[in-house]
Design a protein around this nucleic acid. Structure first.
Lengths: 343, 343
DNA sequence: TTGTATGCGTTATCAA
DNA sequence: TTGATAACGCATACAA
């Protein structure tokens, strides 16, 4: 079958150790020897057996990426970026979906699949305060998102509160006063939902606008569908928003859909702002105003931190939060386009 | 560090063989022995080392999934479904992105990463006729898509021509006569683009409508952006379509965006049909009429076929093409909604 | 029903 | 600069 190092060694008239040295780019090899080995490798069409190397070295070159689901466009784009970043560092990615189910989230941390990976980039939804000890795992872990803050691990996060506040202030600046929040998780004290709600309320407060609970729409998982449902709930309740701040773009697009189905004009009657800057929002009708949380940088940073740890980098857990920006589209300012040009 | 079978065996007072038997569910074990072993496993917090097992058995329980990129919503949803299906068969998935670059597509087939996987679900874009021999690989391979037809491997495909024809006939049935095609790959003889173009032309032909080259918009990669660009090209050329059949939903949404930016009404002035039935099209404004190609079934079938082959299933290469359907939305019939209810 | 011994293909130790 | 040889942790003939 497939050739082994033994075969190559025999053919090149050297020892397996020498073949190994060549394959791994060990510098002190006589050029003639190296050539003989490379020739033999080419002739036999040899490829290294990664499984054997993994067993011997205890490392696999694979990292895990755990997300809620790839059908959520933000996580699909994040996975794209993570795979890209990993590739450029010579790493392979295994994606696991937990769907926000606590049991799956725990299983991912402790399951035997972790023996297959050198480390994990972990974006939980169900885990929260009190679960810090679950993060005390015997392998490198980089946390994404805002569910757990004082875990013993590196953490790449978004500037949720600041960004949410900025988004809300932007709407206030447009003269909107009855701003709905879509994606609220009642009773939650940490997590993106809580932090974004904080930012939203802080902005209202600073502007002297009284928060109205009737304008807060709940949504567990942040899908288009749940965004539409939350929007419907707010409207059915009789609240009359003149703007919506949705906690992510999928929610925003679902909410916008619901508004339009009901004959409300976006942005004239209701302005809509999302969060995530997914590509979809550049082509929606109208295009979506959104917070750009720095997804690319989040992915690159997470991979870099994790890779460093897998190679033994010591030191205090890092906490990184890339800068954010607001991308303005037609969902808040009539006729404003965002398609081709910007980031 | 982590406990090994040796440790468990010592603690339980049995041999490693017995531990192995217990771990692997071998039936003929005395209950008392099994209990001792399970207790020892629990006490030591033992987990099997998958790398060692992989080396020993020559199988990894991992399958590869190669797609253009996860940022394309169809492939994100496909990956979701594949991971789900794999999970339910006890398999893990490694995703590789090739971006439609031929060099990457070849590398994926032959690279050393294949030693890490038991088989590959492979959806190429650049490979085509003449590349059949590249598919003659020493591991199980399931082909997705329409680039290569007579390869020596299992093949799960869409009913491209029939579905494209049905979509076009549907537009003709609405009275549209100047139907643009968006996503054309000029000169291509196989591939989704060619097959869908065939179906489109066949429908026109059968209806006695003369095909107009000015109505055919090129798009290499099928993104929202390229859809918008192709649509712009067609319009700038002076063609005056009353409908668009886009070869996938991303193109369709991009094209619809371009139409709307130019002040054309969808569907009144121009009706739009896509292909793929991604979730996004249920919430666009208007909602998107599209071909449902049976993504879930494609994913399940591909995983099932591959898993079978990895376990030694012999026999002729299979060719499977799930049935398709047309989902009608507001992009072709005013006021028609498709959100919550249907598949 | 359970134990012993061997090898999967690689890297690491040490010596030459 | 290179070679001989011992692990890495598990599964499996074969033996008991």
């Amino acid at each position: 079958m497939a050739a082994t190092m033994q075969d190559v060694a025999r053919r090149a008239g050297v020892s397996v150790k020498t073949v190994s040295n060549v394959v791994n780019g060990y510098p002190h090899i006589r050029p003639a020897t190296r050539d003989r080995v490379l020739t033999a490798i080419a002739e036999l069409d040899y490829q290294i057996n990664l499984t054997a190397r993994n067993l011997r070295t205890g490392r696999t070159g694979i990292i895990g990426l755990a997300v809620p689901e790839l059908s959520l466009p933000y996580f699909a784009e994040l996975a794209d970026s993570v795979i890209e970043a990993a590739e450029s560092e010579g790493l392979t990615v295994i994606i696991e979906q937990h769907g926000g189910r606590r049991e799956r989230e725990v299983e991912i941390l402790t399951g035997s699949r972790r023996h297959l990976t050198d480390g994990l980039i972990y974006s939980p939804l169900a885990l929260g305060p009190g679960d810090e000890r679950l993060l005390d795992v015997p392998y490198p872990l980089v946390l994404l998102g805002e569910r757990i803050f004082h875990g013993p691990v590196d953490h790449v996060t978004m500037r949720n509160t600041d960004a949410a506040r900025a988004a809300t202030e932007y709407l206030l600046g447009l003269g909107r006063r009855r701003i709905a929040a879509v994606g609220v998780h009642p009773g939650e004290e940490v997590g993106s939902a809580a932090l974004r709600l904080d930012g939203y309320r802080a902005a209202l407060d600073a502007a002297g606008v009284r928060p109205d609970p009737a304008l807060e729409g709940e949504a567990g998982l942040w899908h288009r569908r749940t965004g539409a449902e939350a929007m419907a709930e707010v409207l059915d309740r009789g609240a009359r928003p003149d703007a919506v701040f949705a906690f992510n773009d999928a929610l925003a697009l679902g909410a916008m859909h619901e508004l339009q189905v009901r004959g409300l004009r976006v942005p004239e009657d209701v302005a809509v702002v999302g969060f995530d800057a997914i590509d979809e929002g550049r082509y929606s009708n109208p295009t979506l105003t959104t917070v750009d949380p720095g997804r690319e940088e989040i992915a690159r940073t997470a991979v870099r931190l994790l890779h460093g740890r897998t190679r033994g980098a010591a030191g205090e857990p890092q906490r990184v939060a890339p800068p954010f920006g607001i991308l303005v589209g037609g969902s808040t300012e009539p006729g404003r386009e965002r398609s081709a040009s910007e980031p």
